[in-house]
């Protein structure tokens, strides 16, 4: 009974996080301007990390949590780099 409850709630939450990822990817593909795409990409990183966390709960494998931590680190650094590039790297005037 307990196992069934947990299996289904993990599955439903994985589906919801997957849908969230699709929404963020829509913004990456559609986003009218570069900053919208970067914001979408940042959200893709966050939802990907959450998806790995739910996989970790499902399998109790430490490897998933390590991967989630790595994604959090890399997502932060890459978003910062993108934002800096938008401010300095592009000639608008």
């Amino acid at each position: 009974m307990t196992e069934l409850l947990i299996i289904w709630s993990v599955l439903i939450s994985q589906i919801m996080i997957g849908l969230a990822m699709v929404c963020a990817l829509y913004r990456v593909a559609r986003g009218p301007r570069a900053q919208d795409r970067i914001l979408g990409l940042d959200t893709v990183y966050i939802t990907g990390m959450l998806l790995l966390l739910t996989f970790g709960i499902r399998t109790a494998n430490v490897l998933y949590f390590e991967a989630a931590l790595t994604i959090a680190l890399l997502g932060f650094v890459s978003t910062i780099a993108f934002a800096k590039f938008l401010m300095r790297g592009e000639v608008i005037e």
């Binding site: 939450s13 969230a20 699709v22």
Partner: peptide, 14 residues
């Protein structure tokens, strides 16, 4: 479930 629902709501907001 509530955490993933809030995540989905944030993505819908985007």
């Amino acid at each position: 479930l509530s955490g993933s629902a809030i995540t989905l709501a944030g993505a819908i907001g985007i």
